[in-house]
Each structure stands twice: as structure tokens, then as C-alpha cells.
């Protein structure tokens, strides 16, 4: 029952996004002029496209055609080369997933141990130093951090390629740029989640029963810290997508982030609308997942919400 209502909400959110994109496209003026280059084609060609994409008749009719097309995966064609916009975006997906996936790994590998250390030694010099580094990592702009890495490791030391793709060495700098920046944020969340979990009665009682420190940490502290950490998953996914848009441009990484930046500069609206809908879909699914994970991790909260 709860799952059904969640699914319904996700579908409604998706439908709202599609409607927003449709309205925004209508507000830009003639969508045919906006998505195609009118200098390159005759009036007849534009009329045939108008018919093909359903930009005829009243706004209501156009909306119906638009929604049907979206449901069929037909988002129009790239103005650059006339290729199917959805295909162009799908092609770029693996590169971005590789980048974000590796960066997420770096984030977790740094964030979990470092955040745990800060929480266990709360108030100490270790804690203060870790929090200071976290503030530094938050304040440095992604694009500048990336350029500094290029300056040091490519321009000065000639160790790594400045950009592009192909080998694992190409992946290294973009992954570090995103992973370290996100680790700075994630460490803070891990620290505060761990601090809250350390205060729980079950942890005190486990210690009192004489369980070893490591056992208390793994069996009692970590599982409880997972609950608040799960709720920030959408925030992290959104942050990764934002960072990818900027960092892919810095390192000429052939993913979706660079595609959207290029497409915006060219005003290639067919591509841009596919990407915004894809990102929205990813965020909606992530939120749905978090709801499910949350009720699985913490049945008490789920029961409270159901009542």
C-alpha cells in the first residue's frame, strides 16, 4: 500500500517534469525555430517537421502529441547532426556512470574511515584537523581544483594526460577531483551520523557487556549510523551529477555533463530536454529507493509513518 502510493508519487513527479519542460519549450517561442536552424531549411521542410513533431493545432493537442512522443522515447533530433537526441544522450551515459561510480568509491573510501575517526575522537586535535580539511574541500571550486591537478601533474610533472579518455590514467584526475571534493562533504555527514549512533543506549550497553571496541563499532554503531546516511543519498547523487557537469568540461571527458554544457552553448534544445528529464528521472528513482531503504533499515520509522 505504502509502496503503491510512493510509486504513484514518483510517476506524478515525472509527469510534472515533462509538463514543465513542455511549457518551458512553448515559452521560448516557436519550438521549431528554437530546435532547428531556420536558416538552413526551406519553409516546406519546417512545415513537415512541424507536422512530424506535432507542433500543429492548439496547445492542448500539442501537449498530447508531446507526451505521447516522450512515452515512445521520441525526443526530437539534435540540431547538430540530425541524430536522434535520446540515442546521442544514451551513448554518453557509460562514460558518466564510470566517472561518477569511481568518484563515489573514492568518496566512501575516504569519508567512512576519516569521518568515523573524527567521531570517535570528537573534540580532539584529530577531529579539528579533519573538520578543517573538510571545510577546505568544500570551499575549493571543482573546476579550479581540476585545473590545479592539471597544472601540477600534466603541465609541470608530465605524469598524466590533461584530458580525454582511453586509459586508466585519463580517469585518475577527474575521479580525484570529484571524489575528494565530495569526500569533504561526506566526511561531515559520517561524523555526525556516527556521533548520534555512539550516544545510543544499545551502544552503551554493548560496551558495558564487555564487547570489544571493533565489535561494538561494526555490530551496533555502523548499522545505526546507516539510517541517517541513507537519507542523504539523493543529495550526494545530485551533487555528483552537478560536479560531473563541470569536471567533465575541465577534463574533456566525453560524458553527459560535457554534452549538456556543449548543447546549452549551441542551444541544442532536443538534447538538453532529454538530459533534464533523465536527471529528473534519476533523482526521482533515487528518492524512491531511499524511501525503500529507509523502511528496510528502520522498520520503526516506517511503522510510525504508516500510522
Amino acid at each position: 500500500m505504502r509502496l503503491a502510493s510512493r510509486l504513484l508519487r514518483a510517476v506524478v513527479s515525472l509527469w510534472l517534469i515533462v509538463t514543465f519542460v513542455f511549457l518551458a519549450l512553448r515559452l521560448t517561442g516557436d519550438p521549431i525555430v528554437a530546435t532547428l536552424n531556420p536558416d538552413d531549411m526551406t519553409r516546406d521542410m519546417m512545415e513537415s517537421y512541424r507536422k512530424l513533431w506535432g507542433f500543429e493545432g492548439t496547445v492542448g493537442e500539442q501537449y498530447m502529441v508531446y507526451v505521447t512522443n516522450v512515452l515512445r522515447g521520441n525526443f526530437g533530433k539534435s540540431i547538430l547532426n540530425g541524430r536522434d537526441a535520446f540515442e546521442v544522450v544514451l551513448e554518453r551515459l557509460p562514460a558518466t556512470l564510470q566517472l561518477i561510480g569511481s568518484a563515489a568509491l573514492v568518496m566512501v573510501l575516504i569519508g567512512v574511515p576519516v569521518g568515523t575517526l573524527a567521531a570517535l575522537k570528537a573534540g580532539s586535535k584529530w577531529d579539528a584537523a579533519i573538520m578543517s580539511f573538510s571545510t577546505l574541500g568544500f570551499a575549493i571550486p571543482n573546476f579550479f581544483f581540476g585545473l590545479l591537478l592539471i597544472l601540477v601533474f600534466s603541465v609541470t610533472l608530465h605524469w598524466l594526460p590533461t584530458g580525454g579518455t582511453g586509459t586508466i590514467w585519463h580517469l585518475l584526475m577527474p575521479v580525484v577531483t570529484i571524489g575528494v571534493a565530495k569526500a569533504a562533504v561526506f566526511t561531515r555527514f559520517v561524523r555526525s551520523a556516527m556521533l548520534d549512533a555512539l550516544k545510543l543506549q544499545c551502544v552503551t550497553s554493548a560496551k558495558a557487556r564487555g564487547l570489544s571496541g571493533a565489535r561494538v563499532l561494526i555490530r551496533h554503531v555502523f548499522p545505526n549510523a546507516l539510517v541517517p546516511l541513507a537519507t542523504i543519498l539523493p543529495l550526494l547523487v545530485g551533487g555528483m551529477i552537478s560536479a560531473a557537469a563541470v569536471v567533465e568540461a575541465v577534463f574533456a571527458w566525453p560524458g553527459i555533463g560535457r554534452l549538456i554544457v556543449e548543447s546549452v552553448a549551441q542551444r541544442n534544445l532536443a538534447i538538453v530536454q532529454v538530459i533534464i528529464m533523465l536527471v529528473a528521472a534519476v533523482m526521482i528513482v533515487t528518492n524512491l529507493l531511499v524511501d525503500l531503504i529507509y523502511s528496510w533499515l528502520d522498520p520503526r520509522a516506517a511503522a510510525a509513518a504508516a500510522n
Binding site: V21, A24, L25, L27, T28, A34, P234, L235, G238, G239, I241, S242, A245, V246, I260, V261, S263, V264, R267, N268, L269, V272, Q273, I275, I276, V279, A280, M283, I284, T286, N287
Partner: peptide
């Protein structure tokens, strides 16, 4: 809160 804002910004810039 759930939309990555830079993507929204890019989209608005592309449209308008």
C-alpha cells in the same frame, strides 16, 4: 532540494 540546481540552471539558460 532534490534537483541538481546547476542542471536546472543550464536548462533555463538553454531555453531562454
Amino acid at each position: 532540494a532534490s534537483l541538481p540546481f546547476i542542471i536546472v540552471t543550464l536548462t533555463i539558460t538553454a531555453f531562454f
